[in-house]
């Protein structure tokens, strides 16, 4: 608990230690998160996602600099994949963020996915909570280089920025479900390269067809002003177009606030988190109650076709 108090007092090493604890999970981390939880809910959580090599880290570097010019403090969580074979990871996002060195208003933390799919680490959400609680105004979350279905970020961030670059695929790629659907702000980075305008046009065409977004439709029949994701062009290497991205991100936050979606999304997020934790905990308890031997016995029977998996589940749960 002492770490949490020190981190709240501005001790950056205590903050770093606390994040490690949360990453490794355990009783101490949970106690700290319990203590910090009432202080969360203040930061604007902004996700930055996109395919590998589109320039996510470079854009995050620029976004953070622009935010600092606007006097906002920035926490950054940069996620890269762990090897499924060795568990090792190469966390290389800091290479693009050297401009942020030495600024006490910025805190950068690299995270390995540690086996989690979906573009984030299992603990990313809790690490974001820690940065939120200690008072960073904006928390930028950079996902792993995402393919088409790494959309977990949309359930973690208030605003999701999807980064594209020219030459990565035709309209067909953009028409597929997934990444495109979670974009609140679309960025065509490397806009100084040939084909940027074509990429922007393809995205424009696709967006017309993907609205309205199903996860945002209100159940009470009310009509609500719909957010139309802007498509912006940037050259993250020199910072062109970055202030416009930040304006769009801020506008999206205002939209969420004004429309009441902010608290609605918050409830959705909390519900999902609650159910997923319940699921983990119930599974853990059930396996503990039944015993590993029983689980193995059931496994053998199912594999031998003596019983089917549905029947086994019913029996195990005593139904």
């Amino acid at each position: 608990m002492e770490l949490a108090t020190q981190a709240l007092g501005g001790n950056r090493y205590a903050l770093a230690r606390l994040i490690s604890l949360v990453e490794d999970d355990g009783a101490e981390a949970r106690a700290a998160l319990t203590a910090l939880y009432p202080r969360t809910g203040q930061a604007h959580i902004v996700g930055v996602t996109g395919a590998p090599g589109t320039g996510k880290s470079t854009l995050v570097n620029q976004l953070a600099q622009s935010l600092r010019e606007r006097d906002q403090t920035v926490g950054i969580v940069a996620v890269d994949p762990s090897s499924p074979f060795t568990g090792g990871a190469m966390l290389g996002d800091r290479v693009r963020m050297r401009d942020l060195a030495g600024d006490p208003g910025v805190f950068i933390r690299s995270m390995a996915t540690r086996g989690n799919l979906g573009g984030l680490a299992r603990a990313t959400r809790d690490v974001v909570k820690v940065l939120d609680a200690v008072g960073f105004a904006v928390v930028l979350v950079e996902t792993v280089g995402a393919g088409q279905s790494e959309v977990e970020i949309a359930r973690t961030a208030h605003t999701t920025v999807v980064v594209e670059a020219p030459g990565l695929g035709d309209e067909m790629q953009a028409l597929k479900a997934g990444l495109m659907e979670i974009a609140d702000v679309l960025v065509v980075n490397k806009a100084d390269r040939p084909g940027a305008a074509n990429t922007a046009r393809a995205l424009e065409m696709v967006l017309d067809r993907s609205a309205p977004r199903p996860n945002l439709s209100s159940g009470d029949g009310e009509t609500r002003q719909l957010w139309e994701p802007p498509i912006l062009q940037t050259v993250a290497l020199d910072g062109s177009g970055v202030p416009q991205v930040l304006d769009a991100v801020a506008a999206h936050r205002e939209h969420l606030r004004a429309s009441g979606l902010w608290s609605e999304l918050e409830r959705e997020r909390v519900r999902e988190e609650l159910l997923s934790l319940l699921q983990q905990e119930l599974l853990r308890r059930t396996v503990a109650r039944v015993g590993e031997e029983q689980v193995q016995a059931w496994t053998a029977q199912i594999a031998a076709r003596q019983v089917d998996v549905y029947t086994a589940v019913h029996e195990i749960l005593g139904e």
Partner: peptide, 19 residues
């Protein structure tokens, strides 16, 4: 080191001691 199972934070070139 990555292949040995470590999480390697690669900071890259031209780092000052402070960085």
């Amino acid at each position: 080191l990555r292949d040995a199972g470590m999480e390697v934070i690669y900071a890259g070139l031209r780092q000052t001691p402070e960085m």
